[in-house]
């Protein structure tokens, strides 16, 4: 998605990327990024937490206006209440079959 940001921005439309993966964002460097240290899938806070969703959107809109430095990354102050680690899905049966053929 950071790559899409770069192409759209380069063509003249400002973008903000709302990321939950700081290492990826740092590497890809979208023009403006707002990093939320939340589990992948909850870029705007926990399900049902309307207040946090509104607060993060406000911060994202502020960043759209205030950013001056290309590639800037702003960190959201939220601390997710529980540790999280992200474990991707286990291999699908199709992927297993493909691997066994190699």
């Amino acid at each position: 998605m950071g790559l899409v940001c770069r192409v759209v921005e380069e063509a003249g439309i400002p973008t903000v990327c709302v990321s939950t993966g700081r290492d990826i964002t740092t590497l890809v460097r979208p023009p403006r990024s707002y990093f939320v240290n939340a589990p992948m899938g909850n870029n705007f806070g926990a399900p049902g937490d309307r207040e946090t969703q509104s607060r993060i959107l406000r911060a994202v809109l502020d960043l759209a206006v205030e950013a001056r430095e290309p590639g800037c990354i702003v960190d959201d102050p939220m601390r997710w209440p529980r540790p999280f680690f992200f474990n991707p899905a286990p291999p699908s049966p199709e992927a297993r079959a493909k691997q066994l053929k190699k």
Binding site: P39, G41, P47, G48, R50, R82, F84, N87, P88, A89
Partner: peptide, 22 residues
């Protein structure tokens, strides 16, 4: 999508990743 942190959260509220109402 399957590529979210299913052990830590859910995608039950679209506004948590697609904040259209907000």
């Amino acid at each position: 999508t399957q590529s979210y942190d299913r052990y830590a959260t859910t995608l039950d509220d679209a506004n948590a990743y697609f904040p259209l109402d907000r």
